[in-house]
Amino acid sequence: MAEQSSVVGKSYPPFEYEVGREKIREYAHAVGEENPVHFDPQAARDAGLRAVAAPPMFAVVYSSGAVAPAMFDPDVGMNFAMMVHGGQEFAWSDLVYAGDTITTTASVLDISKREDKTFYVFETVSVNQEGQEVVRGTWTNIERGG
């Protein structure tokens, strides 16, 4: 973990994800979402939505492909054997719909040491095909021992 401070601010290539209606269904079933706007196009339109909408936490599905290369970057140097997912934040600005193409860019936001722990914080910013930001994620991993 030498030179880690120099990696703060590093960003990674954008990751593009095309949102499928059946992937939304699969995700919504797995987490127990029951609102028909996640399954039924007519119910979505009746609710004033332009298509079947993803549950907010579907953000994990389209942004993990962007954040994984950052977490595995040897310049960052996380030790996965000693790592736990310590915290997560999402700030949503728009819903994501079936048929959307979401482009997510990840960067290293901060690396800090407190006692025997090292905190690795990554940020993802996701935009839809109109260029509208849909969500901003903050991913905190904690490595013990450092």
């Binding site: 609102n35 706007v37 996640h38 909408a53 993803a54 549950p55 907010p56 936490m57 915290g87 997560q88 934040e89 999402f90 700030a91 949503w92 819903l95 903050t138």
Partner: peptide, 9 residues
């Protein structure tokens, strides 16, 4: 689903 603006855990 539009009601949830931010969630930090």
């Amino acid at each position: 689903p539009r009601a949830l603006r931010r969630l930090a855990v």
